[in-house]
Nucleic acid binder design. Structure first.
Length: 485
DNA sequence: GCATGATCATGC
DNA sequence: GCATGATCATGC
């Protein structure tokens, strides 16, 4: 076996597969046997891909399908898939998964001496183009990049990743490993990783069993790395880190920028900002928020790469939140083909994925009685708590059941003006108080095709619908947030 | 007051 | 043109 001394040598050697596939670099007389093994390994193909790279690119003899480190000369090798977007842009197909989190051991670690950092300080990213149902031997390797986590990433990113790691460890120390969620953190996440959903692990500090999880970079963060580090593109986004004197987390920068304006009316805020923004401006509240953050567009780099959606919400003067929060509309045909958690492909149903990975940054205004002023109440970062995930699943399952059995319209009623109104089977606002299904399109004629025609009306398509987080549920979350008055 | 279906409006 | 943020209308 060839011995690699330096990281540069590892990088140099890896280039033999750049713009090629394994098939093109391996001896032809071994292909048949390898293909037989690939068939045998079925859903462990991805692990086998790593092993084949070690063998055919780096000459490291395979030792059977093992969970052994994919590590040469202190470089952690990461073969990870890209997919091609409609506009011919390459994006990461998934999160970048690092090693498993050992719940028992990690609580004794510090960031500086963590097993995570030790193992992943330098990683060789090998991106291949994934194509559905293509053999792993045919994947073409598009980009290879040697990444030194502590030195190649910005100080802010490294600091945020450290805080993410510490947050995850603190949660395990509190005995809440079973409540971990990828959306808890910003760039470094704790993603689920198990052969099937029956696999669970012990955790220290609590007898409740927890799902196995691994550290991972969020998909959005990987995409940011691809764009900036590999393609060297300048991002067309705004940063909230401009003119910061010290290194901070996303959350602390946001809180700091908003601190001066909490409990001030919109007029007072604009005066402080020397802004002449008119109330009639399009998306008035969002523009106020952007001015406070010091950005000119709605594309904010730190929010994008942490998969954070900024939402401006406005409470009534009595504190009630009227508006629920929508997710993208679902295509009925896709919905019924989803599994809540697809063990074989490690895929989640779209709603599940959104709830586990997305974070919200809420900027909360409140109306003033008898005035058209609004008061800025607080900002808060929030993600869906895993304790309620089964409630979301119930709504999703009901919806899938109804759509796949053609039960959409329960009843057609006429209103006072004689206009038809359809009552559906979908789980509505009062189903469980957490998530519900409601229409979301331009109007009722804005439809999507059904997998099974509706039993009552016979129609083959129906008004676009989506999942919503109940307004009352979000209101509770806002009230429970003790961070600011 | 609230649930529910519906639609308008904005930005990409 | 479309997705989605924002809001309305109706009826109990």
């Amino acid at each position: 076996m060839t011995t690699y001394i330096t990281k540069e040598e590892v990088l140099e050697q890896s280039r033999i597969i750049l713009n090629k596939s394994l098939y093109e670099i391996m001896p032809s007389d071994q292909i048949e046997e390898i293909e037989r093994k690939i068939y045998e390994y079925k859903n462990q193909r991805k692990g086998y891909l790593g092993e084949l790279i070690e063998w055919y690119v780096f000459g490291k003899k395979p030792d059977g399908l093992s969970q052994a480190d994919f590590n040469i000369a202190g470089v952690e090798l990461k073969a990870t898939p890209l997919k091609k977007h409609k506009n011919n842009i390459y994006a990461s197909k998934e999160r970048l998964v690092f090693s498993m989190i050992n719940y028992e051991e990690i609580v004794k670690e510090t960031w500086e001496k963590s097993s995570f950092l030790k193992k992943n300080k330098v990683i060789l990213l090998m991106f291949y183009l994934w194509i559905q149902s293509q053999s792993i031997l045919d994947y073409e390797f598009k980009y290879i990049h040697l990444l030194d986590l502590l030195n190649d990433l910005s100080d802010e990113d490294v600091f945020q990743i450290q805080k993410d790691w510490e947050y995850i460890v603190e949660k395990i120390k509190r005995g809440e490993a079973h409540l971990l969620s990828e959306g808890d953190t910003y760039y470094l996440g704790a993603c689920t990783k198990a052969a099937n959903s029956r696999v669970v692990r012990d955790q220290p500090m609590n007898r409740t069993l927890a799902k196995p999880r691994a550290f991972s970079f969020k998909q959005q963060y990987i995409n940011y790395l691809i764009q900036t580090k590999l393609l060297k593109r300048k991002t067309s986004t705004d940063s909230i880190f401009k003119k910061q004197r010290r290194i901070e987390t996303i959350e602390s920068v946001v809180k700091e920028k908003f601190a001066l304006f909490i409990n001030k009316t919109d007029e007072e805020i604009l005066k402080k900002l020397n802004s002449n923004l008119g109330k009639k401006s399009k998306s008035y509240k969002r523009l106020i928020v952007n001015q406070i953050l010091g950005v000119k567009s709605n594309n904010i780099e730190e929010l994008e790469k942490a998969n954070i959606t900024l939402k401006v919400v406005t409470l009534e003067y009595n504190g009630r939140l009227k508006e629920s929060i929508s997710f993208p509309f679902f295509k009925y045909k896709d919905l019924v083909n989803e599994l809540w958690y697809d063990e074989e492909n490690e895929n989640m149903a779209e709603l599940h994925l959104q709830l586990e990975t997305k974070k919200f940054m809420f900027v909360v205004f409140q109306k003033v009685k008898g005035s058209d002023d609004i008061i800025l109440r607080k900002t808060m970062f929030w993600n869906f708590p895993m304790k309620d995930i089964s409630k979301a699943r119930d709504v999703w399952e009901k919806t899938v059941d109804f759509v796949s059995s053609g039960k959409i319209v329960k009843e057609i009623v006429l209103d006072k003006k004689g206009k038809e109104k359809r009552i559906t089977y979908f789980p509505g606002m009062s189903f469980n108080g957490v998530v519900h299904v409601r229409p979301h399109g331009s109007n009722s004629r804005d439809v999507n095709i059904l997998p099974v025609a509706d039993l009552l009306t016979g129609q083959k398509s129906y008004t676009k619908q989506c999942f919503w987080l109940n307004a009352g549920y979000i209101q509770q979350a806002i009230e429970n947030d003790k961070d600011q008055a």
